[in-house]
């Protein structure tokens, strides 16, 4: 509910301000200046990365670091070719792994968190408050503090250095349950559930046909949160994985970057690899940004 209100205001706020005439020129240009300076700060590293990925190794220090060379495009294509073929295409493998860990993990994680949060919001049952508090404490327990104990447990059952070792722990998101509870409470009316009951729909069926649809904008937010958390997770794969064909792209680039000393040709691969790995994420992010705003408002206002 607050989501739609927020989105309405988002649109309103982007329209040219009606009261602009009343504000003094000085404070308006001051505000624009602050924002312009910080735009430079936020975008220049990404711009630098883009420009550098269009250069050959010799051009790194010999040409202008923030502008393209005349044959930049062909160098870019050549760099891409090297990146995708190096070490029999291991970089593509890393990208696929990251998409799998983050995509499948966030999908399953959102589903189980939504079910649990929905139950916490919509049913009275014994132990409900205890359960919610236990889950909330989980939000305050840092994920990295779990990486080592998870490694010890997985090594007991000989599952370290497998996809499972990174995938399974990533599904669990206590913060997702917390969000799902808030979203379910605000977006699924009790009267509707009552009506579904009268129609003879089972509780589980009602959830999958009705509640999940009402919660869907919130579920996208939860999915995004978890996708980013898994995509960025570094400690767990670092501690679990030895075999580089299982690496997510962050760990793979870290490994390349750490061996630049022995293999300097990796430097251009690290640069273009970093660029290639963040482009899809930035695009996905920016195109789904309204889900961030709406969901974050509901999550923090409460």
């Amino acid at each position: 509910m607050s989501t739609t209100a927020t989105q309405r205001r988002l649109i309103r706020n982007d329209a040219p301000p009606r009261t602009a005439g009343r504000e003094s020129i000085v404070s308006r240009s001051g505000a624009m200046l602050v924002m312009a300076v910080f735009t430079f700060y936020f975008l220049i590293p990404v711009w630098w990365l883009l420009v550098q990925s269009t250069k050959t190794r010799g051009e790194f220090s010999s040409t202008a670091p923030l502008w393209f060379t005349p044959d930049g495009f062909s160098s870019f294509v050549a760099n891409l070719g090297t990146l995708f073929s190096y070490d029999s295409g291991v970089f593509v493998r890393w990208l696929v792994n990251s998409v799998f860990y983050a995509g499948a993990g966030a999908f399953l994680g959102t589903l189980v968190a939504a079910m649990c949060g929905y139950a916490l919001a919509k049913y009275q049952f014994r132990g409900r408050e205890v359960l919610f508090n236990v889950v909330l404490s989980g939000v305050l327990v840092p994920a990295t503090a779990l990486a080592l104990p998870l490694f010890l447990i997985f090594s007991q059952v000989q599952l370290t250095n497998t996809y499972w070792a990174v995938f399974l722990p990533s599904i669990v998101s206590p913060f997702g349950v917390y969000l799902a509870r808030i979203f379910a409470a605000s977006s699924v009316p009790d009267e509707l559930l009552e009506a579904a009951r009268l129609d003879g729909s089972g509780e589980v069926r009602t959830f999958f046909t009705l509640a999940i649809r009402l919660m869907s904008p919130a579920l996208v937010t939860m999915f995004l949160f978890q996708f980013v958390a898994i995509w960025n997770n570094f400690f767990l794969p670092l501690i679990m994985l030895r075999d580089q064909t299982l690496f997510p792209v962050t760990l793979g680039l870290y490994a390349w970057n750490s061996s630049i000393g022995q293999a300097p040709e990796l430097r251009s691969l690290v640069i273009i690899g970093a660029f290639v790995s963040i482009v899809p994420l930035i695009i996905a992010f920016l195109s789904l940004q309204r889900f961030w705003s709406g969901g974050l408002a509901a999550g923090s206002i409460k």
Binding site: P45, V46, N232, T250, L253, I278, L281, F285, L286
Partner: peptide
């Protein structure tokens, strides 16, 4: 907001 899409390692 764009830098938030960049993982810590990168």
């Amino acid at each position: 907001f764009a830098p938030y899409a960049v993982p810590g390692v990168i």
